[in-house]
């Protein structure tokens, strides 16, 4: 589904990611672990095609298509979607009208209820939302957008424990399941706290540190290792 080969990414002359190799098979959910500023968000932004990240070398192949030279819109059309870490507020655009623009009114009520956002449907997007509410709405937005590859940038940060379960449930229901055109969805999640790991079925985890992919392995084992040893390579 997603194949990243030898990827080096820079902002101007400043290299942010170096020689990243990552393989995400169709239907799987992978998590990215790493300290602040390690390049996890930069990797998601690069896959999505957000500026100012520039691919210096290497390839990003999505569903058989090299996408590194495609623009944001083309990647979105191919089926890549991103739940932002800090999405913008949209004064004057209600959640309901936004869902209508996505063509997802039918799914809105049920999905919103699952994420406990039923009372938010007629409010302006992210205006006056708490940190956790913004995150839940961002997850809901991505679910409504219905991409094949779902990128979540810290979906559980700032979300209270009870709602982390709802966020996890939402991710679990979508990733591995078919999208509206019947294609199986895959997901890549950045997590800081690891809380989400208890509520999703993650297939693999990758540690990113100082712009390099340090190690990949079983999510729960790796997270346990990080809790005791920090972001290091576990002994074989």
């Amino acid at each position: 589904m997603l194949e990243i080969r030898n990827l080096t990414v820079a902002i101007g002359d400043n290299v942010i990611l170096r020689d990243i190799d990552l393989h995400l098979p169709e239907g799987e959910l992978h998590v990215l672990l790493g300290p602040n500023g390690s390049g996890k968000s930069s990797l998601l932004a690069t896959i999505m095609g957000l500026p100012p990240f520039e691919v210096v070398s290497g390839e990003i192949i999505f569903a058989g298509t090299p996408i590194q030279s495609l623009d944001l819109t083309e990647r979105a059309e191919l089926g890549i979607g991103l739940a932002y870490q800090r999405p913008p507020s949209l004064d004057g655009v209600t959640v309901r009208s936004f869902a209508a623009a996505l063509g997802a009114v039918a799914a809105l009520e049920t999905e919103a209820a699952a994420l406990d956002l039923t009372g938010f449907l007629d409010r302006d997007m992210n205006v006056g939302f708490s940190g956790g509410e913004i995150k839940r709405w961002e997850v809901l937005k991505l679910v409504l957008q219905d991409p094949r590859l779902l990128l979540f940038d810290e979906p559980e940060s700032g979300v209270d424990l009870e709602h982390v379960i709802a966020v996890g449930d939402a991710i679990r229901r979508v990733v591995g399941a078919p999208d509206r055109s019947g294609r199986t969805c895959s997901g890549l999640v950045i997590t800081h706290t690891g809380l989400i790991l208890s509520h999703v079925k993650a297939d693999r985890a990758h540690i990113i540190k100082e712009g390099r992919l340090l190690h990949s392995g079983d999510p729960h084992e790796l997270f346990g290792h990080i809790q005791t040893e920090g972001y290091t390579i576990p002994a074989a």
Binding site: P51, L72, T73, A76, G81, P88, L102
Partner: peptide
């Protein structure tokens, strides 16, 4: 204009 708004629209599939 916050370029983030334009980028967000593009991530949702809107053309330039």
């Amino acid at each position: 204009v916050d370029p983030g708004l334009e980028e967000a629209a593009a991530t949702l599939g809107a053309s330039r």
